[in-house]
Simulated assay, not measured.
Amino acid sequence: MNKQLLGLLRDLPRWRIIFLIVLAGGLAMLTFLLLENIITSILYNSLVFTNTRNAFIDIVGPRKWDRLLQVVEPVVYLVLWMMLTLLYLYLFYRRERRAYYDRCVSRLIQDVAFIAEGNFNDRLKEMPFQDLALLSDHIMIVVDRLKQSMKEELQAEMTKNELITNVSHDLRTPMTSILGYLSLIENDKYKDEVELRYYTQIVYARASALNNLIHDLFEYTKLRNKTVSLEKIPINMVEMLSQMEQQFRLELERSGVECRQFYSTEEKYVLGDSNKLARVFENLFSNAIHYGKDGKYLDIFLKDEDDTLIIDIVNYGDPIPAIDLPHIFDRFYRVEKSRSAETGGSGLGLAIAKDIIELHQGTIDVSSSSEKTCFTVQLQLLNKQS
């Protein structure tokens, strides 16, 4: 009620408020005079009232009766006039409140029509009436959801265009190289069998890179569309990490990187898809060797806290720039911008790794400083005795 009254007072012109107050007082006075004449006529023509008044005068005396009338009559008249004035003010308030409600409805309709024309950043004004306020809130919820839907649609369109651009670039580069060398071979533009073999090796390498990119694209699409089914089994992560070290032993030696393990041989199990999780750590090991070879060490930390297994893959190469850290798990994102196969892969490896970890209800994060770069994987620990 207070909100409605304040809104009404703000909405009405000052002259109208003063006019209604004066009108209420005037009507109250006229009504009071009319009632006074009617009541006085009835009372003085009533035999019962006349006898009662005369008896009371005989008891108190005429003088006291006159003094009593002089004191009581003004008070009674004032109280009655104020009550009638308040009654008229209340009736005026009810009428103006209804008119104010209609004006609020009209304003709400106009504001909704303005938003419907495409002005989705505009907000509906606060309504003083509960039902209109509830309607306004629900309309704004619909508008906000529509804005979010439009934003997501725009983002999806931009993502699609970006995906087409990136895929076209990454497919065209090796394909151009393959066609170029095959053209040399087709036209016998090589000096000897050694050069021919060199050309075929290049073609094979480019075709392998192209095949890997296509495979990554299919896997990334399936992961994003949630069409991948996980074959979960208990996995000993200590054993998997040790196997990773052996798998990358030759690559570690060629890069001059020493792999150091900072965990015990006690078995630590998680429930997951072994092939998918192996893909994650293959990518993390490969990145750590490729980008951290100047640091000479690749460190693996494994620990458990409560029901969580925490795995850190640490290298000591060049840090990842702070501007790139928030985007490191975005698809096709590379810290170096050349998109060269010599300096990076398809740009999907970390995006795929993130999706796989999230399918296992885990998390993967990265931190980087001038001292080290650390990828942290957290998975739910499985209590298994073996």
Rank of each mutant, 00 (worst) to 15 (best):
N166Y: 09
K125M: 08
R107T: 04
D58W: 07
I109C: 03
P62S: 14
V105A: 02
R145N: 15
I178R: 00
L163R: 12
M158A: 12
P62C: 05
L91Y: 09
W65C: 06
K64C: 12
S168T: 11
Y100L: 03
D131C: 06
I178L: 04
T85D: 00
Y88L: 07
A156V: 04
D137H: 11
M150Q: 09
L171G: 01
R63C: 06
L84K: 01
T176M: 13
Y101L: 01
H169Q: 05
M150V: 06
I164G: 00
M150F: 09
D137Y: 09
I141N: 07
Q70V: 10
L89N: 02
R95K: 08
E96I: 02
D170K: 04
E162D: 07
V105C: 08
Y100N: 02
M83W: 10
S106K: 14
N166C: 06
S149Y: 09
K151I: 06
T176V: 11
N119L: 10
L89C: 10
V167P: 00
L78T: 08
I57V: 09
E162N: 12
P62N: 14
D137I: 09
T176K: 14
A156G: 06
L89K: 03
L91F: 08
H169M: 11
E152V: 06
R172H: 10
A113V: 10
R67H: 12
D122N: 11
M158Y: 11
D66Y: 14
A99Q: 14
I57Y: 08
V112C: 05
R123C: 06
K160I: 08
E162M: 10
M82I: 15
T50R: 13
P128M: 00
K147I: 12
V76I: 15
H138S: 08
C104G: 05
A156N: 13
D122L: 12
M127T: 02
G61M: 07
K125Q: 11
L179G: 03
R107E: 07
